[in-house]
């Protein structure tokens, strides 16, 4: 019914790059570019405009987090799926805050990978329970905060999850599928999906506000 999804694979490990490229091509995706470093990735992204970027976080500079931010800045409709062997949870969280909408560990099976690319391309979010736990923790950190930033007097709106969003995110973190969550809460699959997307959107927006505030504080917004 539709055009094949255009994908770019970014990984500095040739074995992996080839394996992922082969798997994607074999199941009908069009791999329009591969890249081994952040620099290559950004150059080829501009040239080929893929819909989905399958991105390893540990690549030669600029790193995966910067690449994610730049890709989303250039084309907000592009989707970034993080495929990482890295044990660094902080980087995964940073990439999601920068705009990635999916995360998969590299040991995931071929079917899991293909399904994740499909879902991310369709605008869905692909979360592991681990990533949901990190996002949940991040909201707790932001809203619970220390006593010093409780008095957020400078008018920055602090993102808060609704009760329902928290509930859904907790269930994702506990390993439940969207289908199971929908059954348990008597919601439609789509509604569950929307709740998860909302949590991400709030986190990403907060990230942008924080970056802007930082830029203003540092005087980086001067156009001179």
């Amino acid at each position: 019914m539709d055009e094949p999804v255009r994908v770019m694979v970014v990984d500095d490990h040739p074995m992996w790059r080839d394996a992922v490229e082969r798997d994607l091509a074999a199941s009908g995706f069009t791999v329009v570019a591969v890249a081994a470093s952040g620099r290559e990735a950004l150059a080829r992204f501009t040239a080929t405009r893929p819909q989905v970027v399958v991105l390893d976080l540990q690549i030669p500079a600029p790193g995966g987090v910067e690449v994610t931010a730049e890709v989303i800045r250039q084309d907000p409709s592009a989707r970034v799926l993080i495929l990482s062997a890295s044990g660094e949870q902080g980087d995964v969280l940073a990439a999601v805050k920068a705009g990635a909408t999916g995360y998969l560990v590299k040991s995931a099976s071929r079917e899991e990978l293909l399904s994740a690319v499909r879902r991310v391309a369709a605008g869905d979010t692909v979360f592991t329970p681990g990533l949901a736990g990190l996002v949940l923790g991040e909201f707790r950190r932001i809203s619970g905060g220390g006593p010093e930033d409780r008095s957020d007097g400078d008018g920055i709106h602090r993102p808060e999850l609704t009760e329902r969003e928290t509930e859904v995110l907790r269930m994702v973190a506990k390993g439940m599928s969207y289908k199971q969550i929908a059954e348990r809460l008597v919601l439609s699959h789509r509604t569950v999906q929307n709740h998860v997307q909302n949590t991400l959107r709030k986190l990403q927006m907060h990230n942008r506000v924080e970056l802007t505030r930082y830029a203003i504080e540092q005087g980086l917004d001067d156009d001179e």
């Binding site: 992996w16 394996a19 540990q58 062997a85 890295s86 044990g87 590299k106 040991s107």
Partner: peptide, 15 residues
Amino acid sequence: AVHDGVLQVLALVQR
């Protein structure tokens, strides 16, 4: 860098 390389290979072998 070393760990990441090893993780990648191990994950590939596993898969």
